[in-house]
Structures are given as structure tokens and as C-alpha cells.
């Protein structure tokens, strides 16, 4: 909060996010706009294409260490993953296995699969998941960053949870079915997607951090995302053996039981023992993190 000028991650586009995330001037784009790798499916449907198919990938340095970076353009078709878009991200993870960077940083801003592309989009996102896991299995850490207008939903919600660690702002949301999908299928009584405060309490960064889905909660500020990525890069590569998976599974089972009756983020904060759940949405990241750290067992799987 002592930064005089914040630059909103939420409002920035994919290129501005990357520029502020990595070392100044270090980013080199791969498969850039000038190559015009546009979607054949959107063209067939006579819909507007984007020269980068809504995702920017490339290599850069962070604190002088080599990283690969991907950033989705939420404003283009909701950051949705089409065939080309997915292939660029898949290629990024395959490249990571060859060039062995210190990490892959993935700035997620997506509602999931691009429905216009149907099966091609579904296949693209499953290939992306497989490539991400192969890179992790090779010892390359993958860190997700969520703070854009589309959050991380659908297939990209799954991709987010395949990462070693996640940095979120409260505005960045994470889930499987998005609020509008739930409302459409189950009705407005089940979930009112127009109720932003509710959407943030149920899918936003503060709840995801409380549950341990997100590793760090930051303010909506590009420099804060950069600082978080730097601190993740400075950590040892997280363990990914069978014992760690078993522990995660047990934690998830306990969590499902512990919050079985919860209908809202407020219920979860109450069960966690936070003194004034209703005030939590108004806290800035530093105050929220302090409050969470003061709990006897802050989160399940952080």
C-alpha cells in the first residue's frame, strides 16, 4: 500500500502484464503477431481474428534468471483457448523441457475452452495440461498468476490448479464452472452471477487463499505480482512425489468435510475462526495476509 502509483494488473492487457512482470526490456516474443497465426475456426465462422490468437508467449528474465512466460488476452473472446492459442501455450511448456528455464510463468485470464472451436479447443486444452505436467515432471516449476477480468475458469481453472503455486488478487477469480454457467444451469436462486460481491467471496482471491488453492494473495498491482513471482522463483522447487500428492488428497478430503455446510465465503471465514468475516472483502492484501497468518493453522494446503 505504500506504492505511490499502482498499475492495475486487472486493467492491463497481456503485453503490459508481461512487460511489468519480467526484467525491463528482457521479453522476447515467440510466434508473435507479425507471424499472423490466426484461428482458422474463427475465419470459417466469419468472426474477427486476432494476430496472436489471444495469447502472448515468449522468453524473458526475472531477477536475471531465464523464465518462459505466457499471458492470455482476456479481452479477446474471454481469453478462451482455441486451437492456435492452446498450441502456443503447449509449445511454451515443450520448450521449457528443452531450454530448462528457472520457471514458467503463466498469466491466466480465461473462461476456458473457446466454444467456437469445439473439439479442437477441447483437445488443445488437454494437450496444454499434458505438456504442463510433463514440464513439471521434468523439474521445471510452473507458477500461475490470476488477476484479470476473466479470472481462471473451465479448463483454465484446471490448468491453474496444475501449477506448482498460484498468485492471485482478490479480483482474479478461480473456479471450474463460472458464475454465469452456474446461474444458467441451476437458476439465479442457486447463484446470482450479477452479485459481484458474492462472486468475489465465492471465487475470488481471498477465498482461494484462505482455502490454500492460491499460494499468495496480492493487491491488484503489476509490481505486486512481480514481487510475488520473484519470491516464488527464489523458493526451492516444490516437492512433487507420491507422499506430497497423498497429503494434498487428504487435505482436500478434510476440507470437503469441514466446509460441507458452507454456502458462501463468509461461512468459510467463520469456520476458519476469523473474527469479523463480513469485513474481510474490504481488507487490502497486506491486512488480509496478516489476519490469515495469525490463525493457528492458516490454510490447508499452502
Amino acid at each position: 500500500m505504500n506504492r505511490p502509483h499502482r498499475h492495475s494488473w486487472f486493467e492491463a492487457d497481456a503485453r503490459a502484464r508481461i512487460a511489468g512482470l519480467v526484467d525491463a526490456g528482457s521479453f522476447r516474443e515467440l510466434c508473435g503477431a507479425h507471424e499472423r497465426l490466426t484461428s482458422p475456426h474463427l475465419a470459417a465462422l466469419d468472426l474477427p481474428a486476432a494476430f496472436d490468437d489471444g495469447v502472448v508467449v515468449g522468453e524473458a528474465t526475472l531477477d536475471g534468471r531465464p523464465v518462459l512466460v505466457g499471458a492470455q488476452q482476456g479481452a479477446f473472446n474471454g481469453g478462451a483457448v482455441g486451437e492456435i492459442h492452446g498450441a502456443k501455450l503447449r509449445g511454451l511448456f515443450e520448450r521449457a523441457r528443452r531450454t530448462r528455464p528457472a520457471a514458467v510463468l503463466l498469466a491466466i485470464d480465461s473462461g476456458g475452452v473457446r466454444l467456437h472451436e469445439a473439439n479442437a479447443g477441447l483437445i488443445a486444452i488437454s494437450e496444454l495440461m499434458r505438456a504442463l505436467l510433463a514440464a513439471r515432471a521434468d523439474g521445471i516449476p510452473v507458477y500461475g498468476l490470476i488477476g484479470g477480468s476473466c479470472g481462471a475458469f473451465g479448463g483454465m481453472g484446471i490448468v491453474a490448479r496444475l501449477c506448482d503455486a498460484l498468485v492471485m488478487s482478490e479480483e482474479g477469480r478461480l473456479g471450474l464452472s463460472g458464475p454465469e454457467v452456474i446461474e444458467t444451469v441451476k437458476g439465479v436462486d442457486e447463484f446470482d452471477s450479477k452479485d459481484r460481491a458474492l462472486v468475489w467471496r465465492v471465487t475470488g482471491g481471498k477465498l482461494r487463499r484462505s482455502l490454500g488453492d492460491a499460494t499468495m494473495l496480492v493487491d491488484d498491482d503489476i509490481a505486486s505480482f512481480r514481487d510475488a513471482a520473484r519470491s516464488l522463483l527464489a523458493r526451492p522447487v516444490p516437492a512433487r512425489d507420491l507422499a506430497a500428492l497423498d497429503a494434498d488428497q487428504r487435505a482436500l478430503a478434510q476440507r470437503a468435510a469441514r466446509y460441507a455446510e458452507a454456502r458462501d465465503g463468509l461461512d468459510i471465514w467463520r469456520v476458519l475462526g476469523l473474527p469479523d468475516p463480513g469485513a474481510i472483502p474490504m481488507l487490502d492484501a497486506a491486512d488480509f495476509n496478516r489476519l490469515l497468518a495469525s490463525l493457528p493453522s492458516p490454510t490447508e494446503a499452502a
Binding site: G32, A33, A50, F51, Q73, A75, F76
Partner: peptide
């Protein structure tokens, strides 16, 4: 590259 292709917007290469 300037701009993003989204409703009411355009990109210029």
C-alpha cells in the same frame, strides 16, 4: 501491435 480485438475495439499491426 496496438490494441486488442474485443467488442468495440480493434488491433493494428
Amino acid at each position: 501491435l496496438c490494441g486488442v480485438v474485443s467488442s468495440g475495439n480493434l488491433e493494428i499491426l
